[in-house]
Lab assay of single mutants.
Amino acid sequence: MGFKLLSKLLVYLTASIMAIASPLAFSVDSSGEYPTVSEIPVGEVRLYQIADGVWSHIATQSFDGAVYPSNGLIVRDGDELLLIDTAWGAKNTAALLAEIEKQIGLPVTRAVSTHFHDDRVGGVDVLRAAGVATYASPSTRRLAEVEGNEIPTHSLEGLSSSGDAVRFGPVELFYPGAAHSTDNLIVYVPSASVLYGGCAIYELSRTSAGNVADADLAEWPTSIERIQQHYPEAQFVIPGHGLPGGLDLLKHTTNVVKAHTNRSVVE
């Protein structure tokens, strides 16, 4: 069995187990497998329904001669939608809004960016022009300005110390501490036991640490421990890039980060 097929099978099995364990909360999309990078042309966006009122959005972007996937989250909030992270750029984010209108038909009224990198804030200006209120932590807003990236308009308070959590509509926002970046936030959907790890969490097929220019490698494993301790009931975990899975993604990420750190020390 090929690795790609095995990865998709694991996603399907995880979703099936969740649907059985929580039949009222989960209505997993039966329309197909989780979209992969090879299936999404740059400039297009796919939506994948995880649970009743919960979707991931998947886009792709060219970077350094390669094409990478990027995940975000959409959560229903009454007759409105909360968006977590842009679709990595203005063109993708405009396509995301169009796809949401086509498939869901509810307005996106608020959006949260989970850290300051372009795959999370690139497209904020498109959201703002569409009347979406954009939010991020003060740290993310400051770092985005320093980096020359787009800056969300509103500040999220109460997320300055490791372990801080605040309720934001249908989700809980959690600051686990520094990891992929010093400002990275985690998003949890309690009604569906869905954990969105953003770039602080890796997919299972990833074996290298990737972009760690703004990471705190020493603190990252401790931050992941905080996530595990705060959300032990999480059933569906979405990484910032690639295929979702279960809580095993947290341990896998820790292993990859520690291996990278150990290699760096040896070198």
Score class of each variant (00 low, 15 high):
L217W: 06
E147C: 06
R206Y: 08
D79M: 12
A130W: 10
G169M: 03
A192K: 11
Y135K: 02
A51T: 09
S264E: 11
A130S: 11
S31P: 08
G246P: 08
L81F: 02
A98G: 13
D29M: 08
S56M: 15
A95D: 10
D216Y: 06
H260V: 12
K91T: 15
V75S: 01
I238A: 00
G123V: 03
D119C: 02
A87S: 06
E267Q: 11
P244M: 13
L97G: 01
I100L: 08
S16N: 05
L73K: 00
A192H: 08
F26E: 15
A21E: 14
A90E: 12
H117K: 03
L156Y: 01
I186A: 10
Y196T: 01
G89F: 03
T60L: 14
G198L: 04
S70E: 03
I17E: 08
D77Q: 04
L96S: 00
I186K: 01
A59H: 06
I50A: 05
E147G: 10
Y48M: 15
L143D: 02
P170H: 04
S139F: 04
S137T: 14
A51M: 06
I224S: 02
E172I: 06
Y135L: 01
H230Q: 11
V121K: 00
W88P: 00
P170Y: 04
V42G: 15
K4P: 06
T222W: 12
I84F: 10
Y68P: 03
H241V: 00
Y175W: 06
T36E: 15
T86Y: 04
G163P: 04
L204F: 09
E172Y: 05
H115N: 05
T222V: 10
V75H: 01
L250S: 01
I20L: 11
R128T: 11
A66L: 14
V108N: 02
E147T: 13
E33N: 10
A133Q: 14
T253H: 02
S62H: 06
G89V: 04
T93K: 00
G89L: 04
V28S: 13
P232L: 09
F63W: 07
A144W: 04
S264H: 14
L97T: 05
E225W: 13
G169I: 05
S208H: 09
H241C: 01
T93V: 00
S161N: 14
F26R: 14
V112R: 04
F116R: 04
A144M: 04
S139Q: 14
V256C: 02
R167I: 13
Y175E: 01
E172L: 05
S7Y: 11
L156D: 02
E219N: 08
D216K: 08
L81A: 07
T134M: 05
T60R: 07
T60A: 12
T253P: 02
K4Y: 15
S160F: 09
Y135A: 02
P190I: 06
V171I: 09
S137G: 06
T14C: 08
H154N: 14
A165S: 14
Q103G: 10
A259I: 11
G148K: 12
K8D: 14
A51S: 08
P176T: 03
P152H: 03
D79C: 05
L24T: 13
G148N: 11
P176H: 04
A95P: 03
L5H: 09
G242A: 05
G53S: 10
L143P: 04
A234I: 09
P41M: 11
S16V: 14
G158T: 07
E44R: 12
